[in-house]
Design a binder for these strands. Structure first.
Lengths: 197, 197
DNA sequence: AGGTACATTGAACAAGTGTTCAATAGTGCT
DNA sequence: AGCACTATTGAACACTTGTTCAATGTACCT
């Protein structure tokens, strides 16, 4: 294993073309929507030949499915427990990260939107997305449960659901270019819901 | 004028093929997303020949632009003033209509989502959508101003922006199939924001 | 009847699409 | 060196797409 030193030494980014292809697909999806994602454009954007896209991803469907999984995983990681921090700080950090510079980029928001649209149009994508949504909800409810042990599991899930409504609204509204002040107030609102007595 | 009695008398729905074509485009958009909207499918769905679609809508772009306008107009009408009702009831009615059976159908929600995605992918659609979004915000702020005359214009717009964040979140989350209880609580949240002291 | 204006059709074209595949390059092994 | 294996290429295929257009239909006017 690990004998590809010669090749990876050539050019730092020439390695792992599969990842480059996936990244190109994500770029195109966020910029031009699903109709901008065609095999030739992906190949061009990734700097590889057309055939290689179908070599690593059997289908166009598989490619898009991989993109969907990649974003969903990223989302779920937002509410992953962080053992370094006390529970209430974990929760607060997770809630504030939603409006952080990492997420409030057009690229990410646009990706989320287009993937939601895809999930709505194709049932199989919808199932993948619904599963990720549930995992996110579970993660958030668990964070709430840790920060406020006096709440029952059902109460935690209820608050998590309410928070997600506001968060989804923030993501969407941020894309429409609403003022930052409104986003800040909405963040505060999610914290109110989470930490309410 | 109005001499088309013979033709319109034939079949009640055969009239106004232009409207039928637009309706077909909306149906396809809500069901299969933008990639499901192609001229042939629209023609088939509307029960007309392919050429007629291009006869009434110069472009595919024009057709989609018309669809976008149609939905945007519908949205803005949601916050239109209703002189029959006292101001606070007008506001409450507008806020509750968002979760009413008229809007919480998959078709409408799906349309909104796909149009947002389109607006994100194509700048010209984005401008149309942003304009409609502003009109909606203005309408909502005006309703709030009527119901609570003690608020300044800026305060009204602020509350309207906060409400829209939650409403957008509700629309989106409803599509993902979240429980109705969460929607109801979110409606209550918008009313709290609107009527807060 | 002829005439004019609009409505409607479907075939045809050019461009773009996803997918396949034989050919080539590269690498590691013996 | 030869061999086996994976990675990579781009041409070729069949199919779908948006758009154009000449032909036909339909209604109304004189």
């Amino acid at each position: 294993m690990s004998t590809n030193t010669t090749k990876s030494g050539q050019q730092g980014e020439q390695i792992d073309r599969q990842a480059r292809i996936l990244e190109a697909a994500l770029d195109l999806l966020s910029l031009h929507g699903i109709s901008g994602v065609n095999m030739r454009a992906v190949a061009r954007e990734a700097g590889v030949a057309l055939g290689l896209v179908n070599y690593y991803f059997e289908d166009k469907m598989s490619l898009i499915r991989a993109a969907l999984h990649s974003i969903d995983d990223h989302d779920v990681r937002l509410v992953a427990p962080d053992p370094e921090l006390p529970p209430d700080e974990q929760l607060q950090k997770a809630l504030r990260r939603v409006a952080g510079p990492e997420l409030l980029t057009t690229r990410y928001l646009s990706l989320r939107l287009h993937l939601w649209a895809l999930a709505q149009a194709h049932e199989d994508f919808g199932l993948i997305n619904a599963a990720a949504f549930d995992r996110y909800l579970d993660g958030l409810a668990a964070l709430i449960g840790n920060a406020k042990p006096e709440l029952s599991g059902a109460q935690c899930r209820e608050r998590a659901a309410d928070i997600v409504v506001v968060q989804n609204g923030m993501w969407l509204t941020a894309l429409l270019g609403v003022d930052e002040a409104s986003i800040k107030r909405s963040i505060a609102r999610t914290e109110e819901i989470a930490f309410a007595a």
